[in-house]
Design a protein around this nucleic acid. Sequence first.
DNA 1: CCAAAACCCTATAAAAATTATAGGGTAATT
DNA 2: AATTACCCTATAATTTTTATAGGGTTTTGG
Lengths: 136, 136
Amino acid sequence: MLSKRAKYAIKTILYLYENKEQTPVSAKTISENERIPYKFLENILRELKTHQVVKSLRGAVGGYSLAKDPNEITVSHLMRIIDGPIALIPCVSERFYESCGECTDEETCRIRKLFGELRTEMLPVLDKTIVELARL
Amino acid sequence: MLSKRAKYAIKTILYLYENKEQTPVSAKTISENERIPYKFLENILRELKTHQVVKSLRGAVGGYSLAKDPNEITVSHLMRIIDGPIALIPCVSERFYESCGECTDEETCRIRKLFGELRTEMLPVLDKTIVELARL
DNA sequence: CCAAAACCCTATAAAAATTATAGGGTAATT
DNA sequence: AATTACCCTATAATTTTTATAGGGTTTTGG
């Protein structure tokens, strides 16, 4: 399951993309429009900022805006920042690899093979950019 | 992420399939060979029995065996029994549909479209049968 | 200058899901 | 009749997810 955090993150980035004229957008505005608990959103935004997906401006007319070309922000990227691996089991994750510590031989583990294949099928869909997502 | 329960279930069914000569196989045997906590396994087995994936025999030489043709048991079926929906968001699940309660219009929700597409790509992989899984 | 708006940060609480165990009951075989 | 092994409900332990608390800092605009 996609966590709410990740879903909120995707919504937030989509919102910033579609309201990029009035930059920056305050967390309060996003919170109200996307119905995301304010303090929870702040937390997500900080994580997105750390990973340089958004940038922020402090002060009275401050807020957030995209830190990079929306053609270079993918849904998979957001999911990895917020939730971690895309893969359904850690032993087939490329960026968050972890041994499952159960099978004796990872090379021949059939569950691993199946979920490796699954990951391969999932990626092209999730590698869609925010611009592509907005056009759906 | 795939839950341990679901992973154990897949392992269990694979084990039963590959040891179908010596039917039935006791929970204890499966527990030891697949390193699954005994009482946890019993619980999983009961759920699989309720859904008629395995059948059981009581008494001194009792145990479990497949209740149907392994060509008709898919990984997706096991996952749905144990974990519920395959889809990463409930509003695109066919068998476990639930409104996400967030978007104003489900028909135009782009996150929903993306994850509907994702589900479509995932299914063919997970619809593999135990026989196919064993051959990987 | 100063008050208001809005970002910044750490900690913690509340809730839910996952994982596992306890403790006994029932059926069948040897 | 003793042993083996399935059957069932409840609950405990752990982890993850979701959210809130409570304050601090920066900047703008009157």
